[in-house]
Amino acid sequence: MQAIADRQGVKRYVIDLTVNGDPHTIVVKANTLLVNVLRDELDLTGTKKGCELGDCGSCTVLLDGKPVDACLVLAVEADGHDIVTIEGVAEHGELDRLQRSFIDNAAVQCGYCTPGMILSAKALLTRNPHPTELEVRQAIAGNLCRCTGYVNIVKAILAAADGSAPQTAAASASAATATTNAAGVTAGLGEEAR
């Protein structure tokens, strides 16, 4: 990796990244975080910052297909690697089945954890297309959500894994209850997790 020193002698490094399939050559400092390169240099603000300590998972991206907290990866460590951010999940405007499933299962509230959740889930389904509920919960255990209690997120990931991510999962669940105004929804940790 090529290094350049500025007048104060602080070194800058020239790194090559592939982000969502696009090549980028960027000059960074040794302590520049990947999350800041993505957000500030490449304007890919779909990658969120929630703690900058690797606790919340909001900045999860895929590094060579593996989910990582972009706040714990130095930009220089990502040199030569392939990165997928949330902006790279839908192709040509066509939503990924996980994205579709998150919408259909009402798994999105404030949306701040959503990009990281979807990428953690995507990595899971890539390596394990038919996970158990416990495996889903383990895969997103590093992604905190403050709105949903994870109930519909887990449901959405399991539905996407079934390949059946139904267009109207939420709508059909409610159709029978809309007029009675006594809808019941039961979801949660299945027996296999206990």
Partner: peptide, 23 residues
């Protein structure tokens, strides 16, 4: 911080059954 202030994770949640009554 979010590791020592302990928010529940996806592994901590129980089964949740949410129901309504007519009103």
């Amino acid at each position: 911080n979010l590791s020592e202030y302990r928010l529940p994770t996806a592994l901590d949640m129980p089964r949740v059954h949410s129901e309504l009554v007519e009103s």
